[in-house]
Simulated scan of single mutants.
Amino acid sequence: MTETAQITIVVADDQAMLRGALAALLELEPDLRVVGVASDGEEAVRVVAETNPDVCLMDIQMPGMDGIAATRVARAANPGTRVLIVTTFARPGYLRSALDAGASGFVVKDAPVEQLADAVRRVHAGLRVVDPALAESSLFEGANPLSEREQQVLRLAADGRSAATIASEVFLSPGTVRNNLSAAIGKVSASNRAQAVRIAQDKGWI
């Protein structure tokens, strides 16, 4: 197959070994060519802008700008680039957030490379590719019940920050932060803040 017919790819993943392995395996496919790699969301956006690939393979949990935020920015700046989420975290909330951000597909990292290569081809062809088990669980989980503010304060509470500390970081009153935390605890049917964080993380809501 000629080079002009190749599907160009950017691989974004914060784990160097995995990033290199993915790139090397995809390069073995005659119709795929890796034109750039990135170690975090901001770099992914920059590399996509510089190389204008057909497809960007995007991890979700990366330092700084995460993969979902990077997907939204990259798609807005480079609408011709399709994004395929490739992640360890098969969480229904992540799937919904990724698709809402403009991703065309969502697969897990333990998928065989042949399946990943096929997902790249299908996404490039304009199709949507979603891990079947995750798609099914997403239907039963429902949408993220948390507001953006509730997600924000719950993320900040994950490492044990006090309401006062969170309040100073997001420019709200401690009372407002406590109200948001209380609402989040109720919406995820948790008994306390720590449990609410665990549930929301497990479902990919924060």
Rank of each mutant, 00 (worst) to 15 (best):
Ala111Gly: 00
Arg96His: 15
Ile68Trp: 03
Ala101His: 06
Leu134Met: 09
Gly102Leu: 04
Val123Phe: 03
Ala90Asp: 13
Leu84Glu: 14
Leu99Asn: 11
Pro92Met: 10
Thr88Gly: 01
Ala90Val: 07
Asp66Thr: 09
Asn78Leu: 04
Asn78Ala: 10
Phe140Thr: 13
His124Tyr: 13
Ala98Ser: 11
Glu114Arg: 08
Ala103Trp: 05
Arg75His: 08
Phe106Met: 05
Arg82Tyr: 08
Asp66His: 10
Leu139Met: 12
Gly93His: 12
Ser147Lys: 09
Val73Trp: 02
Leu139Phe: 08
Glu141Tyr: 14
Ala119Thr: 08
Leu84Thr: 13
Ala143Cys: 09
Glu136Asp: 15
Ala143Ile: 13
Thr87His: 01
Gly102His: 08
Arg91Cys: 04
Arg91Asn: 08
Ala119Cys: 02
Glu136Tyr: 15
Met65Trp: 10
Ala90Gly: 14
Ala103Met: 07
Thr71Asp: 03
Ser104Met: 13
Leu127Phe: 13
Ser104Arg: 10
Tyr94Ser: 02
Glu136Asn: 15
Val130Asn: 05
Ser138Arg: 12
Gln115Met: 03
Pro145Leu: 14
Pro112Gln: 07
Lys109Arg: 01
Ser137Lys: 13
Arg121Ile: 13
Gln115Ile: 05
Val86His: 02
Gly126Phe: 11
Asp66Ser: 09
Ile68Phe: 05
Tyr94Cys: 02
